[in-house]
Structure formats: C-alpha cells, structure tokens
Simulated scan of single mutants.
Amino acid sequence: MSFSVSWHTLLDEAEELSADAVLVTPLSQTPFRISDTQEHRIIIEYVEKDETRPLQREQFETLFRRVSDASAQEFDLDRLPPDAEPFAAVWSLHPRMEVDEDIGVIRQTDLETTTQLATSGQEDEQTEREEPDLQLYSDALLLTDALERHDMTDPTAIETNALVDLYTMLSDVQRSADDLRKEIADVLLSRLHHDQPVSGQFGSVQRTTRSQRALKDEETVVNALEAAGIDRERVTSLDRNKVDDALAVTELAESDLYELDTTEYVRKADVDEESKETRLQGLKDRLAASDAADDEVEQLQAEITELEDRIEELTSFTSATSYHTSSTGG
C-alpha cells in the first residue's frame, strides 16, 4: 500500500465516524474522539480531560513506514512513545490496518480488521442481561440479599445465627472472587506489555515484576562465603527441629526459647449448601414468576443491576478466610 492512498482512505474512514464515536488507545486505554479531519492532520479531543490535540500527517506516515518496512509488516506497540498511542488507534480505522492487543502489535493485513472503537453505554443497555453461570454470582446474590435484611451499621445488634450466616457467605464470596480474579489476572497478564497502567471504567492495572529468592543448599552457601573470607559461625543459625528436640529433654519452658504470640480467630467450619441453594432458587423464582411491572420484581432487578457495583466492596478482604484478633503471650 502507498502511504498517500492509505492516508486518504484513513481520512474517509475518520469522516464517516459518528460525532459521539469514542476510540481508545491500545495500551493505556485512554478514550478520545475525532473532532475534525483535515488534509494534513486529524484533530482529536480526549474524553476524560479538557484537551484537544492535532495528529500530524507526517507522524502517521512515520508509523505507517515502520509497519510497512518490517518483514512481518507489523510493529510492536511497546516501541511506541507514550504520546504516540492515538496514532495507532486512529490507524485501526483503516480497513487494512489492525491493532492486535493480545500480542501487542499494529499490523497491515488483507483480512477483515477491527477498530479501537469503544463500546457505548447505549449498546450495553440494548444487550439482554443474562445470569452468568458463575459461583461468584450466586454467592454474591445471596450475600446482597442478606445484607439488605440486616442493619450492618451495628453488627452487635444482630443475632448470632444471622452473623454466622453472614460470615459464611462473606467467606464464600471471597473464595469464589479470588478464584475468578486469578483467572482474569492470567488473561490480563498476556495482554499487558510494559509497565504503563491500563485503565478501565472503574480502575487501572499494571504489569509488575516481583522477585523471590531462596538460599541454595547449605554447603554451597557456606563454602562460597568462607572463600570470600566470612567465618562459618557468622552465617550458621539454630536449627528449629534441633531446638525442639533439646526442649523435649530439658526442664526449659517453651517461652524460654520462643517468643509466643497467641491468636484467636473465627473459622468457617461448615456450609449448608442445601439451604443456600433453596434461598438462591427462591430469589431466582421470584424474578422469573412475577410480572415484569410488579414493584417487587422491579426492586429485585434494580438490586441485581447494582450488584456489580457492590462486588468490589463485598470482596475487599485479605486472602485469608478468617478474621483474626491478636494477643501476645509470654
């Protein structure tokens, strides 16, 4: 493809966009609109900040050349300067240019391509809502129902059996949310290509690297340190198993050798899955069997709609399934 022909095709595609069409940059997911197209530039305006920016034809040509000159006719998005992402997003309007976020490239192709257009809220509203086949959805629905039947501003006023149910459901939501979060994280990890944050509607994520270390076998470590002039005695430590063996044959108390910290905690001992399923089915049946105009159904439907907004709050616990209170003993 020649650049001149491709440029005018791109201008035509940009001019055909509706005035409210939103594009998103491929890495940082920054939304913007095209406000004007001219012979030598395309003007964009950012959705989330009061800023317009001209994208010059020469810079579009630079990116075009880098894609065209590559042996595979593709260019790594990681190599784009931070302010060059909008050029890739706009190029995706061209029928022969594609941004592949899964592998992090912009490429030329003869196949049908997709653009970096964002999904509008109106399209979301027109999509029929379906109950997801997820354990988290069922657990969260039960928890939402329970929270709305109790005044959580003062948990001390709630009866013990109700608190037990709430604790059980919170634990179930946490576990199923952690499982789903791990699956989503694995997918996201394959799509994040550098340390630049990627934003969604409710937050942002970033690829990070965490290093862990473990000592090599004792002989290797000690020999290496001795060769470097460090005495063996300086790095050898007490073996806990040997200390326990010695403790068992002496009159020393455990507190003489250990700092003791006693922790009391609540642990989920059992779950009545049958009762949970009965209650959950009751909620679903009330939605399915009642008239859509019924006030109760409208209220339940509103509650389910709000459920997604509450999930983050309901699952904002540590990864442990127990709530600990700590007291130190000597």
Rank of each mutant, 00 (worst) to 15 (best):
S255D: 11
S171F: 05
D78M: 08
Q212D: 09
Q73I: 00
E61R: 10
T328G: 06
Q206G: 03
Q201E: 12
D36I: 03
V249Y: 08
D270V: 05
R149C: 06
A228D: 13
L247E: 02
N241P: 00
A21Q: 01
R149W: 05
S35F: 04
V297G: 00
F87C: 01
D261V: 15
E218A: 14
V24S: 07
L188P: 02
K242Y: 05
L280A: 11
A70L: 01
T220S: 15
L188S: 10
D124S: 07
S6K: 01
A118I: 09
L192Q: 11
L27E: 11
F317L: 08
P54Q: 10
A146E: 14
D102G: 08
A146R: 11
L238G: 08
V164P: 00
E45H: 09
V222W: 04
Y265A: 13
F75W: 10
A72R: 10
V47E: 12
Q116L: 13
D195V: 02
R213I: 08
Q135F: 07
H193T: 04
L314A: 11
D186F: 01
A89V: 08
G104Y: 12
R210G: 07
V187R: 15
A214V: 15
S190W: 00
Q281L: 11
S322N: 13
R53L: 13
I43K: 15
A269G: 00
K182G: 13
S275Q: 14
S275W: 04
R213W: 14
Y265W: 10
H194Q: 09
I311C: 01
D272I: 07
Q301N: 09
E125C: 04
S327A: 09
L247M: 06
R240G: 07
A14E: 06
T52A: 14
T278F: 04
E61Q: 15
